Simulated scan of single mutants.
Amino acid sequence: MKKRNLFLFYIVVILFFTGCVSLKDVSVYKNEEISEYKYALINSTESLTSNVGTTINGVYVSEGKTVNPRDIISGYLMKRGFIIITEISDDIKDKTLIVNYGESGRRNILFGYTTEVTLQFISAGTKNLVCSSTAEGIGDREADDIKKAITRALEAVFEE
């Protein structure tokens, strides 16, 4: 009985400290309004798979999650009314954004780390930076970190 109570105590302590992690504020830099654009070309990104494994009754069980940053960005922009294109033609380049994604940092916290991502929105017509956004994310796995960070970065860009 004492072992069970001690185990429950450790679980409560871990959950308490994990819930106290605060993410850095999202950083957004805007040169012009993104609402002036209608099309987006999102550069390809590699999928990331995060695996977590455990042994249950002597059998190793692994569970994985996969995320492709381009898919998250595409879905969000489509929901906002953007038309996702695969190449830029001269007749629409002034209304087209080129979107770049990059992992820009990692910060150690109590029981893990946060992942930071940066998104760039570049005018296809002028090649100037329209906007950039940097955000952190934290989740159960690295794939969750990235998904949350991208979502936070995009929400900050389109905040009214």
Rank of each mutant, 00 (worst) to 15 (best):
R4E: 11
I11A: 08
I14R: 11
L15K: 11
F16W: 11
F16R: 09
G19V: 00
G19W: 08
C20T: 07
S22L: 06
V26M: 10
K30Y: 12
I42C: 07
I42G: 03
L48I: 15
S50I: 11
N51E: 15
N57E: 15
N57I: 08
V59K: 14
Y60P: 09
V61L: 08
E63F: 12
V67A: 08
N68R: 12
N68I: 04
P69L: 02
I73R: 08
S74Q: 06
G75I: 05
G75C: 10
Y76S: 08
L77R: 02
K79H: 12
R80M: 15
G81E: 07
G81Q: 07
G81M: 08
I84M: 04
I84V: 13
I84N: 00
I88K: 01
I88C: 09
S89V: 13
D90E: 09
I92M: 04
K93D: 01
D94Y: 05
K95D: 00
K95F: 07
T96F: 00
L97W: 03
V99T: 02
Y101I: 04
E103Q: 14
S104I: 05
G105C: 03
G105W: 03
R106G: 05
R107Y: 02
L110D: 00
F111D: 08
G112S: 15
T114G: 03
T114H: 14
T118W: 15
Q120L: 11
A124L: 02
K127C: 03
N128M: 10
L129F: 02
V130M: 00
V130F: 00
T134S: 10
A135E: 04
E136L: 02
E136F: 03
I138P: 04
G139Q: 05
D140M: 12
E142S: 08
A143M: 03
A143F: 06
I150M: 05
T151V: 10
T151G: 08
R152Q: 07
A153V: 09
E159D: 13
E160N: 14
